[in-house]
Computed example of a mutant assay.
Amino acid sequence: MKKTALPTMLSFCTPGLREQIEALPEGTALIGLSTTGQAIAVDLTGGCPHVLVCTASGGGSTTLLRSLTAQFLHQGAHALVLDSKRISHLWARGLPTVTHRGNVAGIHDALVGLGDEMARRLTLTDTELDAAPRLIVSMDSAPSALRQLTRYWETFRGKDDPRMSPAVSALEAALYTGRAIRVHVILDGTPSSSVLGVAPHEMFGTVILARVTTTTWQRLAPLAGPAPKPSRLSGRSHVIRENEAHETQAIWMTDADVVTWLTDPDDHDS
């Protein structure tokens, strides 16, 4: 298939792009455009219940998490935004259907609460579950956050308590059972399988890689062919789906774009 030149930036304000995003079916979010002109999207209802994002510094992982989470929120989902850096997702603060947590205690409690919510959803009938809002768990800097959660649990774990942090256990459970109960994880980073107990490429239907090393590519996309030469262009990534790599220019959505869109969806002038 013939390749086309990608734009150096794909802004949310690009004419026609917002309308294209808003026309997507519920549970689908646009990542960006590929070199073949194809719209590259995530479909949570299909073969991609969870998304893994892994980039080197400056590769756009925070922007990707923000863009994908915002699109699902616009469709009526609720979100748990876990921001261990505390400043990467300030857009999420104050939005009515978003729980934003930054410090380790808050992230711990939020994930324990997620475990309770998943247990509740498992008791719902199909009709009740269909009426429940989709729940997005968006975790930035996951390796660091998971290490913090593990250390935090060790500070007060009793001798009869489980060895693994209940917060980490809840996240692991979401990866295994989320599809069935409309809970989906968007994870930034490459957490060790010794922490979550799973191999990353086995649990995520879509993997987005940018500026990664050959070793990281082989670990996260072992069947997608050799690692491509990293691009220095902002927002340029490779989206791995069904073991195929699609070079993609990701959507750029600023904090202001997201807040305005979610709080005043009829405003088309921003």
Rank of each mutant, 00 (worst) to 15 (best):
P49M: 03
P49Y: 06
H50C: 14
H50N: 09
H50I: 10
H50Q: 12
V51M: 04
L52K: 04
L52E: 00
V53M: 03
V53A: 09
V53D: 00
C54Q: 06
C54F: 01
T55E: 00
T55I: 00
T55K: 01
A56D: 11
S57H: 12
S57K: 07
G58V: 15
G58W: 13
G58C: 11
G58F: 10
G59C: 01
G59A: 05
G59D: 00
G59V: 00
G59R: 06
G60A: 14
G60N: 06
G60R: 09
G60L: 06
S61V: 03
S61Q: 04
T62H: 04
T62W: 08
T62Y: 01
T62K: 14
T63L: 15
T63S: 15
T63K: 04
L64K: 01
L64S: 02
L65H: 03
L65K: 05
L65I: 11
L65R: 13
R66S: 06
R66Q: 14
S67V: 06
S67D: 03
S67G: 08
S67L: 03
S67I: 03
S67M: 01
L68Q: 03
L68H: 10
L68I: 14
L68F: 11
L68K: 08
T69D: 11
T69H: 10
A70T: 12
A70C: 08
A70V: 04
Q71A: 10
Q71T: 10
Q71V: 07
F72G: 01
F72C: 09
F72Y: 14
F72I: 08
F72P: 01
L73V: 13
L73H: 02
H74A: 15
Q75H: 15
A77Q: 11
A77W: 06
A77H: 07
A77K: 04
H78T: 15
H78Q: 15
A79W: 01
A79E: 00
A79M: 02
L80W: 02
L80D: 09
L80K: 09
L80N: 07
L80S: 12
V81L: 09
V81N: 04
V81E: 05
L82N: 12
L82T: 13
L82P: 08
L82Y: 13
D83N: 13
D83A: 06
S84W: 02
S84G: 05
K85I: 05
K85F: 05
R86V: 12
R86C: 11
R86Q: 14
I87S: 09
I87M: 09
S88M: 04
